[in-house]
Design a protein around this nucleic acid. Structure first.
Lengths: 330, 330
DNA sequence: ATAATTATTGAAAATATTTTCATTTTCAAC
DNA sequence: GTTGAAAATGAAAATATTTTCAATAATTAT
């Protein structure tokens, strides 16, 4: 229908394309008088710059590709939100690509982002990076990895300090003489599990003990409950730490179902506070994991890489805070 | 660094740009022999088409803009997943834009998608559409609305049949003589709340009764629990229906905390089954809301609109299925 | 073998912008 | 009123593709 280009604007304002372009891009050299004329013409004709043509002319698209495992979206909505908010501030558009484990060929996604000529790629990877991301380095496409400590010439990373969080938690318990601490994990073999394991080990080592309280279950929640229901028939711990909120729910229900009172008989701690961990009773302790910040910081880092501002630290470790159950007062 | 264009490929294969373009786009007219030569050249040089230049030449970007309220991401991860999966099949790229209520100016997002020259826009809107989306119609940009029954010349919509779901649920109870059915809702005034209300009203009307069991609370979960904890001190219902899974959790905990046994004293039903509703005990009944399908169907509809295939129905209502608690066997 | 037809290929224009470099205008200083 | 410098502007090339239309090559029918 109506298709207004810079050319029409130029004609309307009686100037050249170059001048219109200068006005659009806020170049300082153009005279106030002509600037006004151009701006009027733009408004009158309803002109809107064409990002595609700009992208072609500049060989730069002000877009970034966000690659995220489908399963992570549910618990990382705030991360996406933070990322998008910051992208908006710096005028970047975000391409979204989801990975379905065992189905998606990551190589295809990489092909896509290269084809779309994104300026940078942000990827959520709680495991080692896929081989195909190497291609991005070859193409000199800056990359930010979220959720994992990985870095190289063109890669920055932002991740949570689970290790320290659980180290301090365990240390606190050990100081009080509480040393039967169990950690529940699914067998995903991700970096969070690993950090948690290492953090606990650290704390035990500090106290001259060996850590053995690691319990592994399937990642399916229904079977988590099932497993724990029978597990708690024969086991009881002083402290029980669950990674995901749904696992904490399962643990809570399985424990109370077996007559184990929370927190009297067993303290339950969840590594990821959520609206679910805060809408159950008895209240449980949880760590507040600032996902919004993860996304926001990652995107900010990306803009720095793209604008070639100084990146003071290529690896940003975000602290996660223990929020004891008392924060949720009735 | 290395920047291979169609021009280099042409030179390498000893053909013209036009021929390379034809090979890339799978045109049938090109001779097998030259086709092979071109394909070899492409592989040898590692050529990758530039979507930006294609976009400019074709005035069509094979991209769609996805606009979604930030708060919806957490419960609609599968929707995004379904949408992206289908987008991938049809070779569309997805731009993601999040709305933070009270903060984001939707007009700016619309400006962005127009600037990016997306071919279509898919928006999750559980309320009426923002005025600024009118601009998309002016620009003839096809639109699919998810979560709300809205349609016009250039707008299709896909939504869940909450109304019928709850109508049948209530009807079933009323048939058994159970008529004290309470519905818990936050005061978001969205289309889901409205459907639920209307569905209940329908059922009661069918039985010649007036529906009055509507309970409204704030949307903050902590206060939901708080509210219900005191509510259940003085009230008790035969059936209690919560919309969101977190509300169901709060209700479950508040009820049992007041000595109301679920399901013996009161049946609890959640309109949105999730991994949370299935990891709690006692088990509660819930509706399985196929979010993946919502996204997938919406995207498929979009591709139809963009390829100008026949769109047989502009409004697609997706059935949601009751999955009684017994499905989660221990 | 030749004309007619069909299949294949290439040249050039079109897509909407930015940017370099050259030109023109403005304005102060002489 | 020149001159010179600085400020403002414009012409044209560059960005990487697709597509139309014309030209050439191959094939078929005569």
């Amino acid at each position: 229908m109506k298709k207004v280009t810079i050319y029409e604007v130029a004609k309307e304002a009686n100037v050249s394309l170059a001048t219109v372009s200068r006005v659009i891009n806020g170049s300082s050299v153009v005279k106030q008088d002509t600037k006004n004329r151009v701006e009027e013409a733009i408004k009158k004709l309803g002109y809107r710059p064409n990002a595609i043509a700009q992208g072609l002319a500049l060989s730069k698209t002000t877009t970034v590709g966000l690659i995220i495992p489908a399963t992570s979206i549910s618990f990382s909505g705030r991360m996406i939100n933070g990322l998008c908010d910051v992208a908006k501030i710096y005028d970047y558009s975000v391409y979204l690509h989801t990975i379905t484990e065992g189905v998606t060929d990551i190589k295809e996604i990489i092909d896509d982002v290269i084809k779309d000529r994104v300026d940078g790629v942000i990827i959520y990877a709680d495991k080692d990076l896929d081989e195909s991301t190497k291609l991005l380095e070859e193409y000199n496409i800056p990359m930010v990895v979220m959720g994992n400590k990985i870095s190289s010439e063109s890669i920055c990373s932002v991740y949570f300090d689970y290790r320290n969080a659980i180290r301090e938690l365990c240390d606190g318990y050990l100081n009080k003489g509480v040393d039967d601490i169990a950690v529940l994990q699914d067998h995903r073999n991700d970096v969070v599990s690993e950090s948690i394991y290492n953090g606990a080990k650290d704390a035990y080592a500090k106290h001259g003990k060996e850590y053995k309280g690691y319990i592994t279950v399937s990642k399916d929640n229904r079977s988590t409950y099932k497993f724990l229901k029978s597990y708690f028939k024969t086991h009881k711990h002083q402290v029980f730490i669950a990674n995901r909120d749904s696992q904490a729910l399962a643990a809570l229900n399985a424990a109370t179902g077996n007559g184990i009172a929370i927190p009297e008989d067993m303290e339950l701690v969840c590594m990821n506070e959520s609206k679910y961990t805060s809408s159950i009773r008895p209240e449980i302790s949880a760590f507040n994991v600032p996902y919004y910040d993860l996304g926001a910081i990652s995107m900010r880092l990306m803009t720095k890489m793209l604008k070639e501002e100084a990146v003071e630290e290529k690896e940003k470790c975000i602290e996660i805070l223990f929020s004891p159950k008392s924060t949720t007062k009735e």
